[in-house]
Design a protein around this nucleic acid. Structure first.
Length: 215
DNA sequence: ATCCCGAGGG
DNA sequence: CCCTCTGGAT
């Protein structure tokens, strides 16, 4: 479905305000390589970035590369990532991820979204984060809970399913804004547009936010 | 009780 | 479409 001129104008107005108020917003995850960003992003599911950074400080000190992590046992990894939640599944996924990277790509990160999402624990959100943030390739729009929630509150997206929200955003946002949009939305979500108690009075976009009564 | 930069399976 | 995985913070 094609986005109307009005929808695009509304979206661009939001983009301009985000650019002004969150000019230097960037990824809050700590990492020293694309591989580490991949692992940190997998660990970030249903977990704060702050908590992920605590976990990865230990994890990357012991297993800095795919080759290192591929050698670790399930128990060793579980112990380190436990506080990030979903720890059995996450430990299994990042270990298998490291193994597959070593086997298929000699420890390097493939640059195609399909190759990334074929890795265990890597979905569209993680794949888009990696290509966009580590390599500057806008393969799609990163849609996490913040991006979805705020895009809906602002009337830029309407669907609930993150994949559908991504399609809505791709239709209405200029491609070169895709990467920045998500980082800025995430910062806005933490600073102002909180899930539970949004600080609407302090929000720079309240004039054109149709939120009142919108989930 | 609800949410945090989700993904995979049924 | 739904459910489950899991701990920590508020």
């Amino acid at each position: 479905m094609a986005a109307s001129r009005e929808e695009k104008n509304h979206a661009r107005r939001v983009v301009r305000h985000l650019a002004k108020h969150y000019a230097d917003a960037e990824c809050a995850l700590n990492y020293d390589s694309p591989f580490q960003l991949l692992i940190a992003t997998i660990l970030s599911a249903q977990c704060t970035d702050e908590r992920v950074n605590i976990v990865t400080a230990d994890l990357f000190a012991q297993y800095p590369t795919a080759h290192d992590l591929a050698q670790a046992t399930q128990k060793q990894v579980e112990k380190i990532v436990k506080s990030a939640g979903f720890y059995r599944a996450k430990a299994k996924n990042i270990r298998n991820c490291a193994k597959q990277l070593v086997e298929k790509y000699d420890g390097e990160i493939p640059l195609e979204l399909e190759a990334l999402t074929a890795l265990p624990g890597v979905g569209r959100k993680t794949g888009n984060v990696l290509l966009g943030t580590a390599f500057g390739i806008p393969s799609g729009v990163v849609v996490d809970t913040h991006v979805g929630r705020i895009s809906r509150r602002l009337g830029i997206a309407f669907e609930k399913d993150p994949v559908k929200v991504e399609r809505e955003l791709m239709a209405v946002l200029p491609k070169k804004e895709w990467i920045y949009y998500s980082h800025r939305m995430i910062h806005h979500g933490r600073a102002i547009c909180d899930a539970r108690k949004p600080l609407c009075e302090d929000c720079s976009m309240k004039r054109f936010c149709p939120r009142i009564g919108v989930k």
